[in-house]
Nucleic acid binder design. Structure first.
Lengths: 191, 191
DNA sequence: GGGAAATCCGGACTGTCAGTCCGGATAGCG
DNA sequence: CGCTATCCGGACTGACAGTCCGGATTTCCC
């Protein structure tokens, strides 16, 4: 194992350029403006480079998503309560939904594009499995009588980019998150 | 309005052939085997015919889905309780979820393909709006304190072809439906 | 500082697909 | 039986994901 030489400087530079170009295209046009040709051109890089770095379209978007959610992931595993370990499960759950909601609301277009690209194995994606595992644990701790695994899928299924855009009015960017939290509260039986 | 001459016999025949070919391709290969070229070829029809009838890929899949769910739609508006009007809202809700679940479980591949094709306006689709309206009403009647519109979206978001396949073990085809019903029961606060 | 070898780059190339278009065929009507 | 609205089919376009390899860079070691 290992032996892994460090990434070459030009490779690293290009990776940043590609990610940045992707963000830019996502921001300016819809998710459908993000063809890998365009990404490569805007990044000032060949198409092959994009694929070598990220494997495919899904990998590219996943990398971006991963970047946007790393902080939450760390807060959830190692951070202070109520996000991190230590707080009672229902509180942690609401805090987690708040964090995930904020990311989703801020990246709805990226979310849509990622869902579209993932196609077949959205549920195998490591990121998804992490969120699912975390939610699952919290739900099981709060309501051992329910099917926590299923409910975790159900809660996550609501984090759909299109739905979020559909439900977020201008001027109330956190409305979606509040709705999700209300739903979770109702599920926990304190509604 | 109207004046609409009846559909020509060859046109009707071809429409059936196309729908049938689509079913067949969905059944034998994954949803990705259903390119409109292939559908046309298998139906023994030109590609133009497929597009003239159904507008685009999404329209074709929607037509198939519509066909599979017409019965439920009618039962819900005009049928006998507990599906139709008359029964208490919570009962109607569970009956409705049972019916929708059955359709979804039996057409998971079609569902996935449709979601994939709809892309941008899944939430404008008349079929979606009907289910959403119905669910919304039942939820509002059962739990006026919650955000029924959002919960209806949340319940529907779980009807994802990939998720259903992911959660349906061989030998227990109704497991998904039961989980959804359990969730709805919990939301209604009788869990 | 210099040279060899691993690593990376770029863009031309392939195969596929959704969707368009129009000359020619056909059904339905009188 | 003939006329016209309607429909048919498949060639055509444009766009995209993903592959491939000759040539350029970088890094490592001396």
């Amino acid at each position: 194992m290992a032996g892994q030489r460090a990434e070459r400087a030009d490779a690293a530079r290009n990776r940043r350029a590609v990610l940045h170009a992707t963000e830019q295209l996502l921001a300016e046009g819809g998710g459908d403006r993000v063809s890998l040709d365009r990404v490569a051109t805007l990044a000032g890089v060949g198409k092959g480079t994009v694929f070598r770095r990220f494997g495919n379209r899904a990998g590219l978007l996943q990398a971006l998503l991963e970047e946007r959610s790393r902080e939450l992931r760390e807060a959830v595993t190692d951070g202070a309560p109520p996000l991190g370990p230590g707080a009672p499960a229902p509180e942690r759950l609401l805090a987690f939904l708040d964090g995930l909601g904020a990311i989703a609301e801020g990246n709805a277009v990226l979310l849509s594009a990622h869902e579209q690209a993932c196609a077949e194995d959205k549920y195998g994606d490591p990121s998804y499995r992490f969120w699912h595992g975390h939610l699952s644990g919290l739900l099981a701790a709060s309501r051992p009588d329910l099917d926590a695994g299923f409910l975790a899928h159900a809660l996550l299924s609501v984090f759909d980019g299109d739905l979020i855009r559909h439900l977020t009015p201008p001027g109330d960017p956190r409305r979606f998150t509040r709705s999700v939290q209300q739903m979770a509260t109702a599920l926990l039986g304190q509604g």
